[in-house]
Amino acid sequence: MLTDEAKLNEIIEHWKRDSSYLIEMLQDVQAHYRYIPHPLARRLAEELDVPVNRIFHIATFYKGFTLEPRGKFPIAVCTGTACHVKGGTRILENILRDLGVEREGQVSADGLFSVESVRCVGCCGLAPVVTVGGDVYGQTSSVKISRILERVRKAEQAH
């Protein structure tokens, strides 16, 4: 599915080929592929007749985009202020260690997870907050998240 051009065309047509909706188009690409594949970024530039560096400028400027694939279950650790004071940053470090990855964005060896910090999910009343594959876990802890990850791993193995 990596260079599914039909999908890209669908996205471009949906936004009526209007380059002022470039950010929206990239969001749709990101939502579909979970990252912005290089070949698609180039195709998009050609189709809209904008310089390719503008696409990469946008894709690197905004936090919502990533240029490398994420894990099957992306983990987002909220490090908004409320989560920070309740230990969110420590949870992030502990997940990195748990996954055996060096840095945020890197996919774990089994391909299941990647972790990154996000600035405020908007559930500050539930701090600290972590999302795993889109599910929100509030008032959580390193130990609880590690159990959740273990559960996901087991469920995936069973498949």
């Binding site: 950010i23 400027f61 905004y62 936090k63 919502g64």
Partner: peptide, 25 residues
Amino acid sequence: IHRGAGAFVCGESTALMASMEGRPG
């Protein structure tokens, strides 16, 4: 509706409008 793509600086009015025009904020 315009969806933001995650940039704190877009709370700044001129950056927000740049972003709405499809440019970096």
